[in-house]
Amino acid sequence: MADRVREPYAAPGQQREAAMMGMYIFLASETMLFSGLFLVALHLRLEHAPEVVAASRQMHYFIGAANTALLLTSSLLVALAVEAAREGRARPAVLATAILLGLGFLALKAVEYRMEYAEGILPLPGAVTEFSSPARHAFMNLYLIATALHAVHLSIGLGLLATLAVRLLRGTLPLPERSIVMVNAGLYWHLVDVIWIFLYPVFYLAR
């Protein structure tokens, strides 16, 4: 089977290790991407502490908390599906539930954006906004950029998981030989989760 050992490799174990290492390096790179945003957030917080605290108090932290719960649960489900795949069992239903939770996150996020838009604090282009201080404006700018970028990552993760769920259903992913594909998609999903775990306190609980 061509899928088993590809050209530059001599043994399946070697190929698996390489794929895993590649994923970890990619995640390190992603982490650096978001760390730039966190640095900006830190700077804003240090320079304009009272306004940032005030802005953070206005956030719908319960929606953020619900979203955190959704993502953590979906990460757990993905981890279970990955473990099963390693042992050779396909669990498309578990994966599908994880995807639903991810979609739930996006839906809640959309609701939250809508509420903020109605309150006039979401600085979308063309939106009518009213901020109590300039620094709060900057805070909301950063909030919108960071959460939108996170949502993009989340959508990519959903795409990955959906593809895998379909492959599991159709049985086109030989397990456990190619479980590395599941492992890597799972790692990516966990990173999306971890980034949210940092975004949540930075924007909602920074008081």
Binding site: V40, P123, P125, S133, P134, A138, N141, L144
Partner: peptide
Amino acid sequence: FGLGVFDPAVG
């Protein structure tokens, strides 16, 4: 989009 984070006008 006018989403300034380096803009001195918003601190």
